[in-house]
Design a protein around this nucleic acid. Structure first.
Lengths: 336, 336
DNA sequence: CAGGGTCGATGCTCACGACGCATCGACCCT
DNA sequence: AGGGTCGATGCGTCGTGAGCATCGACCCTG
């Protein structure tokens, strides 16, 4: 039976001289079949569950005649009889049973899609991709993730370790929404906020004489073997330390240049010399490596900034940033 | 923002003295939010894909103004801005991006639901649960499954082994649609058709003197050790054999009663005696067990019937039965 | 800087179709 | 035979989605 078989006594659907009919929103699906509407699914589901048009109509806050007609229309659209009805009983056909399951799924999906979208728009939910430098991942990032899980439980965080330069690129291409970067960060496209500043600490191998002191100064490294940051892979720390050493007239004996802090501590562990690392690195525990504070000026020279695109209007991102600024640091954002 | 915030210069939606509005089909979802329609999803998807209202409208065979309004309406229903539009550009918001994926899924699901339902109604697809007795599973059932896969590739067969009595019960409760049963099957609710009749064969252990003959008669079993069917678990075969033996004045020496044919052959293999089994059991291969035809009257006494409820109107079931009757046996169904 | 062009939003009118009400017709029960 | 139930259908009404015309914002160009 053709989906368009006209009901007796009723003029044909979507056939006639009126061209508008053929182009109606609800009328055409790729020129093939007309498509049903969710309201019709609701009608069918209610009727199939009640197996009684009157009660189903009541449940749908409507009267029985239009409900009957909507179900008929749905059946005509599908070209399939879904319900066997006499004046005494309403029963599902096998096709109706199958379609009932599908209809429920579609309605559930529609409901949850609406809900999820509302939540994303309200900033309750959504995806946030975060870029972070290795060192910020030791302590600050885990705290951030815990905070986010607690206050924005539906935020779906994606974490990507990358150096500051890569993060800038990723922010511009949209691969990440937030970067945890080292200064300087001077880009007009970005808003930034300092989220952390921490002191330096010395990592010393067991047996090092300087462990006797509770706190070190830069002078304690003069002439002594030091594992140093590589100027290419860890430019921020390299520049910071060389600047500090120069300002204090200190010249350590650089025994090795490395990029990553955990390799640095591994070399300390191997007894190659001392290292100077951000306080957060104390979260890394190596046997036979102990830490001592190092006094510097300024006393918290290691800074971490959060950066994001000013034109990123994602509501969850806004909520996330507000949360970070309120909790992680009292510093105001210096969005320019 | 409330989902019902009226547009400026437009009278409020679903608010007013007219009670009918509040009870409209499309207007109410559990009294909470109004629900969108699939046509609106189609509008949004087209617009989101074209990122241009004019072109999207063209694709949808409509003009731009109603398309704009449908998208606005969808946004109002969701309470969410899905598209950022200026007169120069249309861009998806983050929420819009998420909703686009959902909308596509919903539309795909709706399309496939319609298609699947049409196929079920046409008898092209659907589920058929088949009950079968153990012996019918050796040969006939596999052929049936192969035939079905070839001719009704979208028929989803479920196979359940059960004895005839259990199948009757399962047919009545709807747990199976088709039973492969042993006669007699005298129930007014069922239609039946004989699908198979086969001869009996003797299963003899290697070394049995009767293997010298190409074909046996019942007299060959007089006084000889025979493994027999249990009258409870395999009543059909028990009754058939005792009737045959009595009619021929033969009295075998029943050394063991068992229910299942494969146990029977295992006992033959163990040398306990001979057994008489349906020809289909020759598909079971046991070491040191050989088969010989047994002449009986009638010569094909083992019958298998297919039974189904007359009031089962499943189209795929009808197609399946037609297929079986056309292919498996020239016998006409004796639906009463 | 004025003028033309593009594009989404909006005012307007029209008619389709979904609504409710009234009623029919089939069927069951007593 | 008569009353009651229930789904289908005729009918009149009105809301709403349709197209057309136009607006207003913005960009491009000479």
């Amino acid at each position: 039976m053709n989906a368009f078989t006209p009901l007796p006594g009723k003029k044909a659907l979507a056939i006639g001289p009126n061209e508008r009919l053929a182009s109606r929103l609800q009328g055409v699906v790729n020129g093939r079949f007309p498509m049903f509407e969710l309201s019709q699914l609701r009608c069918f589901v209610a009727t199939a569950e009640e197996l009684h048009f009157g009660r189903a109509a009541q449940r749908l806050n409507m009267t029985q005649p239009p409900l009957s007609r909507q179900v008929q229309l749905l059946e005509r659209i599908l070209g399939v009889t879904l319900l066997d009805r006499t004046s005494r009983s309403v029963r599902l056909t096998p096709a109706g049973r199958a379609f009932l399951l599908e209809a429920r799924r579609i309605l559930r999906l529609a409901e949850s899609a609406a809900l999820a979208t509302r939540r994303i728009a309200s900033g309750e939910a959504g995806q946030i991709a975060i870029g972070f430098t290795a060192a910020s991942g030791y302590n600050f990032l885990p705290q951030l993730v815990i905070l986010s899980k607690a206050r924005l439980p539906n935020a779906d965080l994606t974490l990507r370790e990358m150096v500051t330069r890569e993060q800038v690129e990723a922010l511009l291409t949209g691969r990440i929404d937030i970067g945890l970067v080292r200064p300087p960060m001077e880009r007009v496209e970005f808003a930034t906020a300092r989220v952390l500043s921490e002191p330096l600490v010395a990592a010393l191998p067991t047996g090092d004489a300087r462990l006797a002191k509770a706190s070190l100064t830069l002078a304690d490294f003069d002439g002594a073997p030091l594992i140093m940051y590589s100027p290419e892979g860890a430019g921020y720390f390299y520049n910071m330390l060389t600047t500090l050493f120069d300002a204090n007239g200190v010249a350590p004996n650089y025994v090795q240049h490395v990029t990553q802090i955990h390799s640095m501590l591994a070399l300390v562990h191997a007894g190659l010399g001392a290292a100077i690392v951000p306080e957060a690195a104390m979260s890394l525990h190596f046997d036979d490596v102990q830490f001592r504070p190092v006094a510097t000026t300024p006393d918290r020279p290691v800074e971490l900034y959060m950066a994001w695109r000013k034109d990123n209007e994602s509501p969850i991102l806004q909520a996330f940033i507000d949360l970070c600024l309120a909790e992680a640091s009292p510093t105001e954002p210096d969005a320019r």
